[in-house]
Design a protein around this nucleic acid. Structure first.
Length: 361
DNA sequence: CACTCGTGGAA
DNA sequence: TTTCCAAGAGT
């Protein structure tokens, strides 16, 4: 029977880590704030994607105080393209809490850390072990996969989370929690990968249940998932007679909260795309517009649905734009669109606008 | 507690 | 091309 507290298990992983561990910008960083930023950016996001964002972020906001003092629009602009924008809003809000309700330093107490917005159990363990070498366990995607294989659990991960947390805590090396947690994640990221794991060079090969049963390719078991529904969205690029276009800022909560976009909405059954756009602009902005020529069609996939944006150039006819379904509306010159944080699908609209040379008539 | 929340790398 | 899934958290 596999003993998770076997010192040889910990020793073999740490030895492997010292020889083969990754070199990362935030690893062994002296500032807990930098560790914190990296942990938030790394949620559901690959290391390679995070690195340039991490470096730009620390240049713009080198301290907790600097982040707390920044306007939210600058924070979102630095996060633009990274996704899951609530992470940026929560990080910003947590920095303000630390400055205004504390002494501006990052806390070392687990319960205090867990109380900060955007920090759950795994991120708290990641920060406290990496920044302060505290023995707090983690359970991220890498660790889940490693442990499911090590223990040969043939049930979907969502059904064995309590067991996996127990295992992570039992395994954790109390004398080297920082290196051990980092080693566990590195093992999952570089050896015990989702496909084609490199079992022949794995320090835990002889202890691994999935390897012994020759089932590494089947574990972890896949979760059942429904196909993503598709929404057709009519989108308006509305010009006024000064050549400016109308953009709106989405409500703070929910999808793409706080980011700017071109207005529009969902195509309803039996409706033409032109009617859809005119209706949405009337409902959400109280504007009368003329829908003109097609600009671009953008296909984009979110986590739980796909969208097809059918974008049309439009001309403002009458009415003053009202923020009925958003937080703010603004007329902006095309050259100034760069100053606003936009979601990825809208970036493609901006590119199309500039390359098409379309302007007001 | 099942659902919501982005984007891109990798196969 | 699709499909999976990444250092998960909030509600």
């Amino acid at each position: 029977m596999l003993d998770l507290t076997d010192p040889d298990l910990r020793r073999s992983l740490l030895t492997w880590y010292h020889r083969c561990g990754r070199v990362l910008p935030w690893r062994n960083h002296p500032d807990p704030y930098a560790i914190w930023v990296s942990e938030i950016m790394l949620q559901q996001t690959q290391v390679k994607t995070v690195i340039p964002y991490y470096q730009r972020w620390l240049e713009a906001f080198p301290t907790i105080a600097a982040l707390a003092a920044a306007p939210q629009q600058q924070v979102l602009k630095l996060w633009q393209g990274l996704g899951y924008y609530a992470r940026a809003r929560n990080l910003h809000r947590a920095a303000q809490m630390l400055v205004h309700q504390g002494d501006g330093s990052f806390p070392q107490d687990l319960q205090t850390v867990l109380a900060l917005p955007g920090i759950g159990r795994t991120t708290a363990g990641g920060i406290l072990s990496a920044a302060f070498n505290q023995p707090v366990a983690i359970l991220d995607g890498n660790v889940k996969r490693v442990l499911v294989r090590l223990l040969a659990l043939d049930r979907p991960i969502s059904q064995v989370l309590p067991q996996l947390w127990e295992a992570s805590e039992a395994l954790l090396d109390r004398h080297h929690p920082r290196d051990f947690n980092q080693a566990l994640m590195d093992l999952g990221a570089t050896v015990c990968t989702p496909k084609n794991p490199a079992c022949l060079i794995c320090p835990w090969r002889s202890a691994c249940g999935a390897y012994a049963l020759n089932r590494t390719a089947e574990l972890p078991m896949g979760e059942t998932s429904a196909p993503l529904p598709l929404k057709i969205i009519g989108v308006a690029v509305i010009f006024n007679d000064r050549g400016q276009v109308l953009i709106d800022r989405r409500p703070e909560d929910g999808l793409l909260g706080g980011l700017w976009e071109f207005p529009g909405g969902k195509l309803e059954a039996g409706e033409t795309i032109t009617d859809c756009i005119r209706r949405e602009i009337a409902e959400e902005l109280a504007l009368d517009i003329e829908v003109g020529q097609h600009l671009i069609t953008v296909d984009h996939a979110y986590s739980h649905f796909r969208v097809q944006l059918q974008v049309y150039c439009c001309q403002h006819r009458s009415g003053e734009p009202q923020p009925l379904a958003c937080d703010e509306v603004r007329w902006v010159a095309i050259a100034d669109l760069d100053q606003y944080p936009f979601p990825k699908a809208n970036e493609r609209i901006i590119t199309a606008l500039r390359t098409s040379g379309i302007s007001a008539h």
